[in-house]
Design a binder for these strands. Structure first.
Lengths: 103, 103
DNA sequence: CACTTATATAATCAATTGATTATATTATTA
DNA sequence: TAATAATATAATCAATTGATTATATAAGTG
């Protein structure tokens, strides 16, 4: 696919508040779905649907740890995405609210 | 508006093939609507609609010259947009095809 | 194995979006 | 001033999208 098309697809994917927030959260560290649900204050299926799209575009890695599935960024080789995320302030503070009984 | 929301809005705007192509074309130089219509091989109303959205988001400047209206990038103060466009190859070659009887 | 917890998937639906068609506006020119 | 060229706007419509609801799968636990 031509580079403009490819970039447009990527930007469309990140051009959603929920998905972009997920990406910003994952800048800090890997999170399981229940963490993300808690932080976004959304439903579990909604979070899962967005995670699926991000994973389909190879923007996320997925690793199972027991009953939890952790998602992390997979953007080593995607400098434009790094730049976009780099320009957004961290959500580290929000992550303190995590009950974090995920283990 | 919070920065994630704002960025998501911008990315959604650029996450469209037609609009992103317009932005890339305007990296080279200002163009009138009929130039853009010719280069995109789309209809005039379609080009105008997309230009309107880009202008509404303050990504474009508009100057009338006689019966033509020229659009140009307005991204001096938008480093993230500069970066995104900077990572896309120029469409200079395509612009040679312009009949350019616009004057 | 039954029960619970974590997550995914499928179906549905309302809202948004991009393109088209038709019409209006504005400037130029004969 | 009538005709034309460039552009904008409005209305319509099909396609896409994001959220929700319901259900399925998979892993841990008593």
């Amino acid at each position: 696919m031509d580079p403009i098309n490819e970039m447009a697809e990527t930007l469309k994917l990140l051009g959603d508040k929920t998905r972009l927030t997920i990406m910003v959260l994952l800048k800090e560290r890997a999170l399981c779905v229940c963490d993300i649900v808690e932080l976004l204050e959304t439903s579990q299926p909604n979070a899962s649907q967005h995670l699926r799209k991000l994973k389909a575009a190879r923007l996320l890695n997925e690793t199972r740890k027991g009953q939890w599935i952790y998602y992390s960024l997979n953007i080593e080789d995607k400098p434009h995405i790094q730049m976009i995320l780099g320009h957004l302030p961290s959500l580290k503070e929000n992550m303190d609210q995590l009950k974090n009984d995920c283990d």
